[in-house]
Computed example of a mutant assay.
Amino acid sequence: MATSTTGMPTQDDCDIVRDCELALLTGAVRGDRASAVLLLHEDFHEFGASGVVWDRESILDMMEEEAADGRVDIKAEDLVTSALGPGVVLVTYDSVTPTRRAHRSSVWVRERGRWQVRHHQGTVVADRASGPTA
């Protein structure tokens, strides 16, 4: 893995993080705790689109249950990665499921040579027919 001389994430790093983020949206990874745990930082937390605040263990439980029930149908649209600083990448996108759309952002950090998501945020997008709200 190439590293820039400034320690800033390279395009290769951003591509790896993008692939990791997309993997977390699949039933294969969500249903395989051993795979998912490799991608979630030990201090992971999420402010979910549902309003629930998740920690690493609770999100692992939820993803495993969701995959076991066959409810994983998540698409990512307009995904963008941005290097924020040495060892830090921001991912933004819209998640689309059969029942809702949400703006998403994830902060990925590289520790001990591995990219892991440290923080995730979801915000439900209002129904376009109802118009904007403040």
Rank of each mutant, 00 (worst) to 15 (best):
D12C: 02
D13C: 05
D15L: 10
I16G: 00
V17Y: 00
V17W: 01
V17H: 00
V17C: 06
V17L: 08
E21Q: 14
E21R: 12
E21S: 11
L22F: 01
A23I: 04
A23Q: 15
G27N: 09
A28T: 15
A28H: 14
A28S: 15
R30T: 05
G31D: 12
G31S: 06
D32E: 03
R33C: 10
R33W: 02
V37P: 07
V37S: 15
V37T: 15
L38C: 12
L40T: 03
H41I: 02
H41A: 12
E42Q: 13
D43F: 03
D43N: 15
D43Y: 03
F44S: 04
F44C: 11
H45C: 11
H45F: 14
E46G: 02
E46I: 09
F47I: 13
F47D: 06
G48D: 03
A49F: 10
A49Y: 10
S50R: 14
G51W: 00
G51R: 14
G51E: 05
V52I: 15
V52P: 01
R56Y: 00
R56I: 04
R56V: 01
E57I: 01
E57A: 15
E57G: 12
S58P: 05
M62T: 05
M62H: 10
M62Y: 12
M63N: 13
E65K: 15
E66L: 09
E66I: 02
A68I: 04
R71Q: 07
R71C: 04
D73Q: 10
I74N: 06
K75G: 03
A76V: 03
D78L: 02
L79E: 08
L79A: 07
V80D: 06
V80T: 11
S82N: 05
S82P: 00
L84I: 01
P86M: 02
P86S: 07
P86G: 07
V89M: 04
V91E: 04
T92L: 02
D94N: 06
D94H: 08
V96Q: 10
V96H: 11
V96I: 13
T97N: 08
T99H: 07
R101Q: 09
R101G: 01
R101K: 12
R104A: 05
S105Q: 04
S105P: 00
S105F: 00
V107K: 11
V107L: 15
W108M: 07
W108I: 12
V109H: 04
E111L: 08
R112Y: 00
R112K: 13
R112W: 00
G113M: 08
Q116Y: 05
V117T: 14
V117D: 06
V117K: 09
V117R: 11
V117Q: 08
R118P: 03
Q121G: 02
Q121M: 12
Q121F: 07
A126G: 10
A126R: 14
A126Y: 00
